[in-house]
């Protein structure tokens, strides 16, 4: 059953990924991206990573894809009536890089002995995730957590500054 679901999700992920990179319409590509991300969330569920799966859906599908859709709708020429073909040398370089990455990954995956997991998979509880995030102990992630918070705050401040624009303070003063 799990094996069947694994192949189902993998096939869905690969197909929608192919759809994303080949389709010309940006909005359709975004919809394909939902398929990719949901299939990967399904794969996470198969290995009992429920929290990761939920976060994947929440952050990537509910956040990132929505943002992409907004950007596409506001900025780009969505339908892309005239298709721009890349120059031949670009295609060649891209093809070479893709092949190189593929061989690298294939060799890495093949040479490493993954073995069978000794401990049965289980989903971490909220308590464990919470303590792991905020614990200053050896297994804690408090420093990355704080750094990410700082980066986010900086991003928010930056976004507000850009959105207000120069001189909007003066207008408000009037």
């Amino acid at each position: 059953m799990n094996t069947f679901l694994f192949y189902l999700f993998s096939a869905a992920a690969l197909l929608s990924a192919y759809f994303v990179v080949t389709v010309h319409n940006l909005f359709r590509a975004a919809m394909g991206l939902i398929g990719v991300l949901l299939s990967i969330a399904g794969l996470y569920l198969l290995v009992d990573a429920q929290f990761l799966s939920a976060v994947q859906i929440m952050v990537y599908v509910g956040g990132i894809v929505v943002l992409i859709v907004y950007v596409v709708l506001l900025v780009a020429d969505v339908a892309q009536k005239q298709v721009h073909h890349a120059a031949t040398w670009r295609k060649a370089v891209a093809g070479f890089l893709a092949a190189a990455l593929f061989t690298l990954l294939a060799v890495a995956a093949h040479s490493h002995d993954f073995g069978v997991a000794q401990v049965p998979a289980r989903s971490a509880s909220v308590t464990e995730i919470g303590t792991a995030l905020l614990s200053p102990e050896r297994n804690g992630y408090v420093l990355p957590f704080e750094v990410i918070s700082l980066v986010l705050v900086a991003a928010i401040v930056g976004a507000i500054t850009i959105a207000r624009g120069a001189g909007s303070d003066k207008k408000e003063a009037k």
Partner: peptide, 21 residues
Amino acid sequence: FNVGLLFVLGISSLGVLGILA
């Protein structure tokens, strides 16, 4: 699921995409 609430929150945010689409 032991993160059922998170799942409901995440999946219900998919609805936005339907509306945008």
